[in-house]
Deep mutational scan, measured.
Amino acid sequence: KKKYVIKVYFEDTGKEVEIEAESKEEALEAAKRLAEELGLKIKKVEIYP
């Protein structure tokens, strides 16, 4: 089964997080949740198959 690796870059902090997920949708949801939890804004998202 294919996994996606999503790199999320946050504004202000210069922080980046990698998330593995089964689908792009799932990964983007996780990225949004994470940003909310951390109180950060997402600057850029890169998706690698």
Rank of each mutant, 00 (worst) to 15 (best):
K1G: 14
K1M: 15
K1N: 15
K1W: 01
K2H: 14
K2E: 15
K2T: 13
K3R: 06
K3G: 08
K3Q: 12
K3D: 14
K3I: 08
K3W: 10
K3N: 08
K3F: 06
Y4A: 03
Y4M: 11
Y4C: 07
Y4V: 15
Y4I: 15
Y4S: 09
V5D: 01
V5R: 10
V5S: 05
V5N: 04
V5K: 11
V5G: 05
V5F: 09
I6F: 05
I6G: 05
I6W: 06
I6Q: 00
I6R: 00
V8G: 00
V8H: 00
V8K: 00
V8Q: 00
V8N: 00
Y9A: 04
Y9E: 13
Y9D: 02
Y9W: 15
F10S: 01
F10I: 01
F10N: 00
F10Q: 00
F10P: 00
E11R: 06
E11L: 10
E11S: 07
E11F: 08
E11G: 07
E11Y: 07
E11I: 10
D12P: 07
D12V: 09
D12E: 08
T13F: 11
T13E: 14
T13K: 10
T13H: 09
T13S: 13
T13Y: 14
G14K: 10
G14P: 07
G14R: 03
G14Y: 14
G14V: 15
G14N: 11
K15I: 05
K15Q: 09
K15T: 12
K15V: 05
E16Y: 13
E16G: 13
E16Q: 06
E16F: 15
V17E: 09
V17H: 11
V17L: 12
E18I: 15
I19E: 01
I19G: 01
I19S: 01
I19H: 01
I19Y: 14
I19D: 01
E20P: 08
E20D: 10
E20G: 10
E20K: 03
E20S: 06
E20W: 09
A21H: 12
A21Q: 02
A21K: 10
A21E: 06
A21T: 13
E22R: 04
E22Y: 05
E22A: 09
S23V: 03
S23H: 04
S23K: 02
S23T: 11
S23L: 03
K24I: 15
K24S: 07
K24P: 05
K24H: 14
K24F: 11
K24M: 14
K24Y: 13
K24E: 14
E25A: 14
E25I: 07
E25H: 12
E26R: 06
E26I: 04
E26L: 11
E26G: 14
E26F: 11
A27K: 00
A27D: 00
A27C: 05
A27Y: 02
A27M: 02
A27G: 15
A27N: 00
A27W: 02
L28A: 10
L28N: 08
E29S: 09
E29V: 13
E29C: 05
E29Y: 09
A30M: 08
A30Y: 10
A30T: 10
A31C: 09
A31R: 00
A31I: 07
A31T: 03
A31N: 00
A31Q: 01
A31H: 00
K32H: 15
K32V: 12
K32Q: 13
R33Y: 07
R33W: 06
R33S: 07
R33C: 04
R33H: 06
L34Y: 13
L34F: 15
L34R: 06
L34M: 14
L34Q: 03
L34W: 15
A35C: 02
A35F: 06
A35P: 01
A35H: 02
A35R: 01
E36C: 08
E36G: 15
E36V: 13
E36K: 09
E37G: 08
E37A: 05
E37T: 05
L38M: 13
L38E: 04
L38D: 01
L38P: 01
G39M: 04
G39Q: 10
G39E: 11
G39W: 01
G39A: 12
L40I: 10
L40D: 08
L40C: 03
L40S: 08
K41Q: 07
K41V: 14
K41F: 03
K41M: 12
K41P: 12
K41W: 01
K41I: 10
I42L: 05
I42A: 01
I42E: 01
I42V: 09
I42S: 01
I42W: 01
K43A: 15
K43P: 01
K43E: 14
K43S: 08
K43M: 13
K44M: 12
K44R: 04
K44W: 09
K44I: 10
V45F: 07
V45M: 13
V45A: 03
V45Y: 03
E46I: 12
I47H: 10
I47P: 04
I47V: 06
I47C: 03
I47Y: 15
I47G: 05
Y48V: 12
Y48F: 15
Y48Q: 10
Y48G: 14
Y48S: 07
Y48I: 14
P49D: 14
P49R: 02
P49A: 02
P49F: 06
P49M: 08
P49W: 04
P49Q: 12
P49V: 05
